[in-house]
């Protein structure tokens, strides 16, 4: 049993949060409940609310572990876990699973030989290589045909993202000749890049793909095609960062954007799976990434943030 609490949320947000928690059910490996009266395993903090931050700071360190910054924009202070407003089920699940997993890792330290075991959907799809693979959970399914570079699914948009967020053991996975293909007439095959991108973004759970060197330097060879899904600010920032002439490591990316490693890993995995990522060995002499790029002034950052905020709120 795990407990989630919150500080500073609006009444509406709190109600939405409670409803979402009630609906999580089988999607989580542990049972989650919303409680204010017991020590919480996770805490959602509205960082746009200064009173809430003040209250939070008064809490003891142990009560502040696993705080999730809930915000309209980039939080002004560093918390590794974040949720953008408004609350969305898929994102909440991803962050709570990350907390579950982090706690599990604390309880059972991973030893060397276990590191190669496939633990995430992203790794599972990456290892599948060229064949056909079917992922199913109940009556929801995704079939990815890597050789024909296409996929089909019973789900689309947000619900497809939610399906790909589940922990690996919850899928029934079949591959190769065992895959029962949906009848051609009933499905719409689409370019696999869209689903591979989502597998990386939703199915990484903070773990870098086995095939990707953690100490590598990364650069995009092209931008992802976003299709109908509007990319988040996080994705656009990371795309821009990895468009620089010199490749960057994970630590550099964290430093440049202030983003949690969880998001950066999801992005790298998604870019790797869709074939748009170039990786250089981190052993080679590191280019001076910092020196090449003059720092963007605070005033300019403020202006760019305002333009971004305006674009996110179209007026008719």
């Amino acid at each position: 049993m795990k407990y989630l609490s919150s500080i500073g949320l609006s009444v509406k947000d709190e109600n939405v949060l409670k409803s979402l928690i009630d609906l999580l059910g089988a999607r989580m490996s542990e049972e989650w409940h919303y409680r204010d009266d017991v020590p919480a395993d996770a805490l959602l903090l509205d960082v746009d609310n200064p009173d809430a931050i003040a209250t939070w700071k008064m809490r003891p360190e142990t009560a502040r572990r696993n705080t999730i910054a809930y915000s309209n924009s980039e939080p002004g202070f560093a918390l590794t876990r974040r949720l953008a407003k408004p609350l969305r089920a898929a994102e909440l699940i991803a962050v709570l699973k990350d907390i579950e997993q982090a706690n599990d890792e604390l309880a059972v330290p991973v030893v060397g030989s276990e590191a190669t075991e496939v633990t995430t959907l992203a790794d599972c799809v990456d290892r599948q290589g060229n064949g056909v693979m079917r992922l199913a959970c109940g009556d929801r399914e995704v079939v990815i045909d890597r050789s024909r570079q296409q996929f089909c699914s019973s789900e689309s948009g947000e619900s497809l993202a939610a399906l790909l967020t589940l922990p690996l053991p919850e899928y029934q996975i079949s591959t190769g000749a065992d895959v029962r293909l949906p009848s051609e007439a009933s499905v719409r095959w689409q370019d696999q890049k869209a689903v591979l991108w989502l597998v990386g973004q939703c199915g990484s759970h903070g773990k870098l793909l086995d095939g990707v060197d953690r100490n590598g330097l990364f650069r995009l060879n092209r931008w992802p095609g976003f299709g109908p899904v509007r990319p988040s600010h996080t994705v656009l920032s990371l795309c821009s960062l990895l468009s620089r002439k010199s490749a960057m490591g994970i630590a550099d990316m964290r430093e440049a954007t202030g983003l949690p490693e969880f998001d950066i890993i999801a992005f790298i995995n998604a870019a790797f799976l869709t074939g748009i990522l170039d990786i250089q060995s981190g052993d080679v002499a590191r280019p001076e990434t910092g020196a090449a790029k003059p720092e963007v002034s605070t005033e300019r950052k403020g202006l760019l943030a305002k333009i971004r905020s305006r674009l996110a709120n179209p007026r008719t």
């Binding site: 931008w223 656009l236 990371l238």
Partner: peptide, 14 residues
């Protein structure tokens, strides 16, 4: 909006 959004991100991070 996507094109402007991407341009703004480029100006900040690339």
């Amino acid at each position: 909006a996507l094109m402007i959004d991407a341009l703004v991100s480029l100006l900040e991070y690339s």
